[in-house]
């Protein structure tokens, strides 16, 4: 039986479905990520001495920082699920393409992160009075998430197999996501004025985000099997 394209996608979806199912029972990932984000936002408010103007000015940067930090918690959790009871061994013993495992994990983590972003966007609209509910902003969030999760699943699959386990992930992943935050925060910030920017103005950052997505996904698909197989 040769693995076909359709079985690649159905396997990836099966693995993502399993993660969603687990989340349906425990609600662990979403509650941890949302609580963490909430605390971070409130903490920043306090740190900025409840100076709402200052907070508003950094709101888009803060939004991305919160997503990335909360994202590491979600990534750690979705990877830990495979570590417990050595469930990963059964995935590796199954007659499936390793990249389908990677795709499945990217899919489920992306869904969790996007759900978190929806909540965060609403939160930021309420707290900082920012016009985040705009289709281009949501698109930027979506594109940025793909690249971040693509790199994140790859790195988390490594870090979870080390002695340091979950503490290592932010140290490894956050520097790698800096070239993503730079254009993403900038493109988001461009939409924070009553007047929407011309596409030409945000074209470069959006292209950079898409390039990041493409490169990290390529890296993930070409190297993932080196990480899970021995």
């Amino acid at each position: 039986m040769k693995p076909t394209t359709s079985s690649f996608f159905s396997t990836a979806w099966t693995i993502a479905w399993k993660d969603l199912q687990i989340e349906k029972h425990t609600r662990q990932i979403m509650s941890v990520m949302v609580m963490f984000s909430l605390v971070t936002v409130v903490m920043f408010n306090f740190a900025l001495e409840t100076n709402l103007d200052a907070a508003r000015n950094v709101a888009t940067g803060l939004l991305w920082a919160t997503i990335l930090l909360a994202g590491t918690l979600g990534l750690n959790r979705t990877m830990a699920v495979e570590r417990e009871n050595q469930a990963m061994d059964t995935l590796l013993m199954a007659p499936i393409n390793r990249n389908a495992i990677y795709a499945g994990k990217v899919l489920s983590t992306t869904i969790f992160t996007l759900a978190l972003e929806l909540i965060l966007v609403l939160l930021f609209i309420v707290f900082f009075n920012k016009p985040l509910w705009r289709p281009p902003v949501l698109l930027i969030l979506f594109l940025g998430t793909i690249g971040y999760v693509a790199a994140g699943v790859l790195i988390a699959s490594m870090s979870i197999q080390t002695r340091a386990r979950d503490v290592l992930l932010p140290v490894l992943l956050l520097p790698l996501s800096l070239p993503l935050v730079l254009p993403a925060a900038m493109a988001t910030a461009a939409y924070m004025f009553p007047q929407q920017p011309l596409f030409a103005e945000v074209q470069t950052p959006i292209m950079l985000i898409m390039l990041y997505d493409a490169l990290m996904l390529t890296a993930g698909f070409t190297t993932y099997h080196y990480i899970v197989e021995s």
Partner: peptide
Amino acid sequence: RFAAVYVIVAFLTIILTFLSVRLMRDI
């Protein structure tokens, strides 16, 4: 193995950072 994978991703990051800082200050 892990270090080799990481070093590849790290190099990509540097290239992407280079592009980011180069291209974005123009616009």
